[in-house]
Nucleic acid binder design. Structure first.
Length: 129
DNA sequence: CTCCTGACTCAGC
DNA sequence: GGCTGAGCCAGGA
C-alpha cells in the first residue's frame, strides 16, 4: 500500500496554520501498523513531529471508533507497552483479545517483549517502504 | 471566548 | 524507585 502517502507536515505542526488534521495523520499511521506489531503513542507523536504531545495521539484514538476504516487502536500502547487504552474499548478485555489474535502476548496489561514487537513509524515509514 | 480534561511523557523529589 | 507536577495540543462544555 504505497497508496495514500501520509500527508504529514513535519515542518511545524503546532503552528496555528495546520493544513491537515492531526487526527487523520494519527489514524493513517496507526492503520499502517503491520499485524502482530505494536507501537507507542510517543513514536507516533514523534513521527508527526509533536512528540511532546503524545496525549494528542491518545486523544485522537478517542475518536478512532468513529472513523472508517476502524483504526487498530489495540496496537497502540504507551511507551511501557502497557495497554493504557483498554478501558476505552467496548470491553476491557477486548484489547487483550485482539492482541492475542495477532500472537501478541499480554501479561498484566503489558505487552510481552514489547521492544521486539515495537514498530516505529518514523523508522519503518521512513524507509523506502 | 474561557476553562477543563485527556488512551502520554519527562523531570524532579 | 514510586509518586507528583508540569508541558504538550485539540476538542467539548
Amino acid at each position: 500500500m504505497q497508496k495514500k502517502r501520509i500527508a504529514v507536515r513535519e515542518g511545524k505542526p503546532r503552528s496555528t496554520n495546520r493544513d491537515y488534521s492531526f487526527f487523520d495523520n494519527v489514524y493513517e499511521v496507526v492503520r499502517q501498523i503491520p499485524k502482530g506489531r505494536i507501537t507507542s503513542f510517543g513514536a507516533i507523536a514523534n513521527y508527526l513531529g509533536t512528540k511532546l504531545s503524545a496525549r494528542m495521539v491518545g486523544w485522537a484514538m478517542n475518536g478512532a471508533h468513529s472513523v472508517s476504516p476502524k483504526v487498530p487502536a489495540h496496537r497502540v500502547v504507551n511507551r511501557n507497552g502497557m495497554l493504557t487504552g483498554k478501558a476505552h474499548f467496548a470491553t476491557p478485555d477486548k484489547m487483550e483479545e485482539l492482541l492475542a489474535k495477532e500472537k501478541i502476548k499480554v501479561e498484566k496489561d503489558t505487552v510481552v517483549e514489547f521492544e521486539k514487537l515495537f514498530w516505529d513509524p518514523a523508522k519503518e515509514l521512513s524507509l523506502d517502504r
